[in-house]
Simulated assay, not measured.
Amino acid sequence: MQYSSLDQFLATGKPLLAKGPVAMIFVEDEIEVDTTIRHHLDSGFTQVLVLMPEGFTLPEDVISKVHRINFDMVAGQDFTDAVNTVIAAAPGIWLYYCFNAEYLFFPFCETRTIGEMLAFHAEERRDAMLCYVIDLYAGDLYRHSNAVSLEDAHMDKSGYYALARNDPANHNHPKERQLDFFGGLRWRYEEHIPAPRRNIDRIALFRACDGLNLEPNHRFNDEEYNTYACPWHHNLTAAIVSFRTAKALKRNPGSTFDIETFKWHNSTPFEWHSRQLLDLGLMEPGQWF
């Protein structure tokens, strides 16, 4: 189905939000839109909302499987407003959001669905899940000038770290069970990345509730949603492998000519398998086996 706006979708398609998990894919450009959609359909989301500019096209094999909503971030529409609108319309439902050329991986995702994972996560009394956004980039930028290639995808195998997240409202003492995570291209090319956008943590999976709001920094107004684990043990985390930063660095005139290759001595080919991310410590299975 196609909708002229998010308001029209909620007016006519709100019953589709009665059961989750629901994925929201925000399309910024026409790069790897089809593969992003197919990947998340295969992950087991009950519904997939694709918010994209009206002039973009979708391949025939996915048109009938998603709900296309006219939405243009380039024209100034804010993805946080859209997420918060869906939150208000779907209390109690697990939601997820990402952008095109981003792909969700979670522990054992090759044999288990997103619904199975979130059912376990909810049993541990968790309403949100920390996701690490792991930068992908093409190994050969001469062949792939937009830095995107699924067949030649690379990632950093080290260089990730965390710092305490201080609370200005509490004399800058560290917040409980919250950290700021860094690494990847946003760490290596930080001179081209504004400081507020250097984090690689995103609460991309969460259960909607009354009064909950997503903020522009990918955190929520409920501090418990921003925690990486419960007080008594480690919880599941997931990873979103993303070409988004690499695309931006090559598209930006201020950085593109400074970068001949993203590869360095800690680059490794991405294997498109959760085991690689688990082995590198880039997501956590918690108590789920």
Rank of each mutant, 00 (worst) to 15 (best):
L10M: 11
D81R: 14
N226P: 04
P231A: 13
A246H: 00
E190A: 05
Y142V: 08
T113G: 11
W288Y: 15
F206C: 05
N213R: 10
F206K: 02
L150E: 11
S242Y: 04
A208S: 15
E284M: 11
V50A: 06
G13W: 01
I31N: 09
D42P: 05
N217C: 13
F99D: 02
A82Q: 01
M1P: 10
P59C: 08
M283G: 01
N166G: 10
H233I: 07
S5L: 12
H121L: 12
A11K: 14
A23W: 06
R251L: 06
S145T: 14
P253A: 05
R188M: 06
E102I: 04
A138N: 00
L150W: 10
D140G: 07
H171D: 09
L16E: 06
T113W: 13
A122W: 08
R188C: 04
L118A: 05
D210E: 12
P194Q: 07
L205I: 00
D127E: 13
H39F: 08
F243G: 00
M129R: 00
Q2W: 09
M117V: 09
L282G: 01
A128T: 08
N170F: 07
A195N: 09
F220L: 03
C98F: 00
H39E: 05
L280N: 03
E284C: 15
D81L: 13
G286F: 03
W272V: 08
K14F: 02
V66L: 10
H265L: 09
A88R: 02
N213H: 10
N217K: 09
E215S: 14
K19H: 12
F56R: 07
L185K: 04
P53R: 14
H234W: 06
H218S: 12
L278H: 07
N84T: 09
I114V: 11
A18Q: 11
D61K: 13
N266W: 11
R188S: 07
D210H: 12
Y96S: 05
E116L: 08
A164F: 10
E215A: 11
E151K: 12
N70P: 02
G184S: 04
P231C: 07
P194G: 12
F243I: 04
V148R: 00
L95R: 07
T261E: 04
A248W: 09
F262H: 00
Y225M: 07
I93P: 02
I93S: 02
S158N: 14
Q77R: 15
F206N: 02
P174C: 04
M1N: 13
M283R: 01
T46S: 13
C98M: 14
I37N: 00
T80I: 06
F257W: 13
F120E: 08
G44S: 04
H121W: 07
I25S: 00
G139L: 04
H173L: 15
G55V: 08
N84R: 10
A208V: 01
P253D: 14
R143K: 08
A162P: 04
V48L: 12
H171E: 15
A162L: 08
T245H: 02
